[in-house]
Simulated scan of single mutants.
Amino acid sequence: HRFDSAQLINIDLSYPDDFDLKEYVEKGGFGILNSDKIIIFVGRFQLKQGQHLFETPLSSDQVVTMEADGWFTLKASVPDTMYFRWWLLSLGDKVEVLEPNWLKDKIVETTRHTLSLYE
């Protein structure tokens, strides 16, 4: 996701006149939307696993609060996408979803089901 350089090429592209790439991305266009709503996400991240979020924020309104125990709390407005949920699950015990409650419940349900496969 990091570019060192880019090169302009001459290719004819067609797209709708009212298309706005920034708006498309912000609404979750590349992340398989579950709904068209933006959620206010609050989570606790282990510093070592989540420090990339300082360099690549989840949103322009992201707020990070450092904690004394090697964790930080992050609040951000994000699209409700499958990609976002998969990413949260990939962090395992290095993230705790605090809000919204329905997302926290979904993560708990998925984690319990996964654990049941190994019992």
Results as ranks from 00 to 15, higher is better:
His1Ile: 15
Tyr83Cys: 03
Phe41Tyr: 07
Leu89Glu: 13
Val108Ile: 15
Leu88Cys: 12
Ser116Asp: 10
Ala6Val: 09
Asp4Tyr: 08
Thr65His: 06
Lys27Leu: 11
Ser77Ala: 11
His52Leu: 14
Asp12Cys: 02
Phe72Leu: 14
Leu21Thr: 12
Gln46His: 11
Ser90Glu: 10
Ser35His: 02
Phe84Ala: 07
Gln46Trp: 05
Ser59Glu: 03
His113Asp: 15
His113Lys: 15
Ile107Gly: 05
Lys94Thr: 02
Val64Asp: 03
Thr111Lys: 09
Gln46Leu: 14
Leu89Thr: 11
Lys106Pro: 02
Phe72Ala: 09
Pro57Glu: 12
Phe45Gln: 01
Asp69Phe: 01
Lys37Met: 14
Ala68Cys: 02
Ile9Glu: 12
Leu53Ile: 12
Gly29Leu: 08
Glu23Phe: 03
Leu89Gly: 09
Asp36Ser: 11
Gln49Ile: 09
Thr111Cys: 04
Lys94Met: 05
Arg2Cys: 03
Leu74Lys: 07
Leu58Glu: 13
Gly28Leu: 04
Phe72Tyr: 05
Trp86Ile: 05
Ser77Trp: 02
Leu21Arg: 09
Asp93His: 02
Val25Thr: 06
Ala68Ser: 09
Pro16Val: 04
Asp36Arg: 09
Phe54Gly: 09
Val95Asn: 00
Leu58Ala: 10
Ala6Asn: 08
His113Gly: 14
Phe45Pro: 00
Leu103Val: 13
Ile11Gln: 10
Asp12Met: 08
Leu58Asp: 11
Trp87Asn: 07
Lys22Val: 15
Glu67Ile: 00
Gln7Pro: 00
Thr56Tyr: 13
Val95Cys: 01
His52Trp: 12
Asp17Trp: 05
Phe45Ser: 05
Gly70Val: 05
Asn34Phe: 05
Ile40Asn: 15
Glu26Leu: 14
Ile107Glu: 04
Phe30Cys: 12
Asp20His: 04
Pro57Gly: 11
Val108Pro: 06
Thr81Asn: 06
Pro79Ala: 07
Leu58Pro: 06
Leu21Glu: 10
Gln62Trp: 01
Ser77Gln: 02
Phe72Ser: 05
Phe84Lys: 06
Lys94Gln: 13
Phe84Leu: 14
Phe41Cys: 06
Gln62Asp: 11
Val63Ser: 07
Gln51Leu: 12
Gly43Val: 07
Phe3His: 03
Glu26His: 06
Lys22Leu: 15
Val25Ile: 15
Ile11Thr: 11
Phe41Asn: 05
Ala68His: 01
